[in-house]
C-alpha cells in the first residue's frame, strides 16, 4: 500500500501523465465524434463503430506507461527508488499496477464517453448497450488498456530509454503486426498470434461489425474466441513483465 501511494505521488507530481490522460481521452472521443457526425446520415452507427478509435487512446496510454519508467531512469530517480525500497520486484509491481489501473480507468472513461457522444450525434441510429457482446466491446477497452500498460511498463524496464521504448511500443502494434500479414502464405497465420491482434479480436470478435474492425487491423479470421484472445494478450503482458522484473532485480540500477 505504501509503495502504491509513493508511486501515485511520483506519477502525478509531473506534468506529462496529465497531458497523456487528456490527449488520450480527447483524441479517442474527438475522433469518434467526427466519425459519428458523418455516419449519422447513413444511419450506420453501431456499438463497435463507436469504439473504432480506441487505438488512439491506447497508444497514448502506452506512451505514458513507458515514460513512467524511463523518465525514472533518465533522471536517476530509479536509484533513489531502489534505495528507499530495496525489494525491486515489489516496487516495480506497485508501479505497474498503478499505471495499469490509471490506463484502464482512462480508457474506460474514453470508451463510455465515445459511446455517449455517438449516441448524441447519431440520431438516426438506434444505439444501445445491451447484451454481453456490446459490454465486452465498450468496457473491454479498459481491460485491454490495463494489460497494454503492464506490457509497456515491462518494455520500459527492459530498455530503460525513452526513445527506444516509445518506438517499440508504437511500431510493434501499429506496423509490425499489420505488415506481418502481407507475408505470403504464412503471414496471416503468424498474425493471428500477434498480441495486439488478439486484444483487438477480444473487443470486436463476434460483433456485428467484426468484419470492418478486422479490416482496420488488416487481419483475417483467428482460430480462437474473444475471451481466449484477451487471456493470450494478458499472458504475454504478464510474462514480459515477469522477465522485466527478473532482469531489473539482477541488473545494476
Amino acid at each position: 500500500m505504501t509503495l502504491l501511494a509513493v508511486e501515485r505521488i511520483k506519477l502525478f507530481s509531473t506534468r506529462s501523465p496529465w497531458w497523456c490522460v487528456v490527449v488520450a481521452v480527447g483524441l479517442t472521443v474527438g475522433f469518434t465524434a467526427l466519425m459519428s457526425g458523418f455516419a449519422n446520415e447513413q444511419g450506420t452507427v453501431t456499438v463497435g463503430f463507436t469504439q473504432f478509435s480506441y487505438q488512439f487512446g491506447l497508444m497514448v496510454l502506452m506512451v505514458m506507461a513507458v515514460l513512467a519508467v524511463t523518465t525514472e531512469y533518465r533522471f536517476g530517480t530509479i536509484r533513489t527508488t531502489f534505495q528507499t525500497a530495496p525489494n525491486r520486484a515489489a516496487v516495480l509491481t506497485a508501479k505497474a499496477l498503478l499505471v495499469a489501473v490509471l490506463a484502464g480507468v482512462v480508457a474506460l472513461a474514453a470508451a463510455f464517453l465515445s459511446f455517449w457522444v455517438s449516441d448524441l450525434l447519431a440520431t438516426n441510429s438506434d444505439l444501445s448497450l445491451s447484451g454481453a457482446d456490446a459490454w465486452r466491446n465498450v468496457a473491454g477497452t479498459g481491460l485491454v488498456a490495463f494489460l497494454a500498460a503492464v506490457l509497456s511498463v515491462a518494455v520500459g524496464i527492459l530498455l530503460r530509454q525513452s526513445a527506444a521504448a516509445v518506438t517499440v511500443v508504437l511500431v510493434w502494434p501499429l506496423l509490425v503486426e499489420g505488415l506481418v500479414s502481407l507475408i505470403p502464405r504464412i503471414g496471416q497465420d503468424i498474425q493471428s498470434w500477434m498480441p495486439f491482434v488478439a486484444a483487438h479480436h477480444f473487443l470486436f470478435g463476434g460483433q456485428p461489425d467484426s468484419a470492418e474492425a478486422a479490416m482496420m487491423m488488416g487481419m483475417s479470421d483467428v482460430p480462437y474466441g474473444p475471451w481466449a484472445g484477451i487471456a493470450y494478450f494478458g499472458a504475454i503482458s504478464v510474462g514480459l513483465f515477469v522477465v522485466a522484473v527478473i532482469t531489473a532485480s539482477r541488473r545494476d540500477a
Binding site: 506529462s16 475522433f31 467526427l34 466519425m35 458523418f38 455516419a39 446520415e41 447513413q42 450506420t44 473504432f52 478509435s53 487505438q55 488512439f56 497508444m59 497514448v60 506512451v63 513507458v66 515514460l67 524511463t70 525513452s162 526513445a163 516509445v166 518506438t167 508504437l170 511500431v171 501499429l174 506496423l175 482496420m216
Partner: peptide, 25 residues
Amino acid sequence: SAGALALLLVWPMLVEPLVSVIPTV
C-alpha cells in the same frame, strides 16, 4: 524525444489509415 516520436509514429501509422474510416469524407 518522447513527444516527437509519439507524434511521428502515431501520425503515419494510425491517424492517416484511420481517417478512411470516417464515412462519406
